[in-house]
Write a protein that binds this DNA or RNA. Sequence first.
DNA 1: AGCCTTCGACTACATCTGTAAACATTAAGT
DNA 2: ACTTAATGTTTACAGATGTAGTCGAAGGCT
Lengths: 140, 140
Amino acid sequence: MIVGESEMAEVNDLPGEQGSERISEAEHAVMEALWEKNPLTAAEVCEQVCDRRGWSMPTVKTLLSRLVAKGAIATEPDGRRFLYRPLLARTAYLGGESRRLVDRLFGGRAAPLFAHLAETEALTDDDIAEIERLLRELRK
Amino acid sequence: MIVGESEMAEVNDLPGEQGSERISEAEHAVMEALWEKNPLTAAEVCEQVCDRRGWSMPTVKTLLSRLVAKGAIATEPDGRRFLYRPLLARTAYLGGESRRLVDRLFGGRAAPLFAHLAETEALTDDDIAEIERLLRELRK
DNA sequence: AGCCTTCGACTACATCTGTAAACATTAAGT
DNA sequence: ACTTAATGTTTACAGATGTAGTCGAAGGCT
């Protein structure tokens, strides 16, 4: 079963899309770490997330690999290890996810989502104040 | 107002939570059909969604079974077949999903989500007007 | 020059999801 | 009664996901 393998795998396969693949929740946690500060080594990413999520290094490694495969992050060699940095901007990710939710659940309209948040008391006073401020700004 | 259905879940609650299991996207499509009109037979659900999603009856059957297993819908025998009706209210589902998104991506604060929608021009004028109206209502 | 540590790569594996076929049952028509 | 069409149940299977172990190369240490 353990097939001897000496070939070097292409890390650079599909050049097609860069940010198109869906990012899972666990992967997202890794992305957050990288968005907060980058580039980071795998060990540094682990420092940021392993405790919080109860993960071990291998898990982080896997997630990093998958993110690289998905084109969400890039690696650059730093001596013998890699530094990871995001390719996908946090803004783009948030925007995409938000839009997906709004499209899927609220027919693409943001107002019903807002109404729901309000209803379920997911809106703090601060939120409301902030949103009013944003609205005024939009009005300009 | 969006104040939704009552909850009439009680018949057979698994030991644990009742609406707690996550509902997948495909399952959600089935739920939408049932929320729109219920109770429905499996065949009727299929009529509602199979074309739109390119599904076959077996697929719908599977999804219905899984939804039953998750406690999101209930069956009642109608002759030899079953009628399906939602146990999980649409309102609750939407609220839950919205909150999940807000928690996961925006640190539980709705304002940043709102800011994002605004920024990415995902807010129509109608949305803005509607939200202002909702805000005024909240202020009361 | 070897041994140990450190990393990335590869492999593993259970669960969930999407999608569906095979099977069993049973009402219904003939 | 016997076949058939409808309907729920069981099983299947590939791909994604969560989580992690193993392997082999590269450097560092003695």
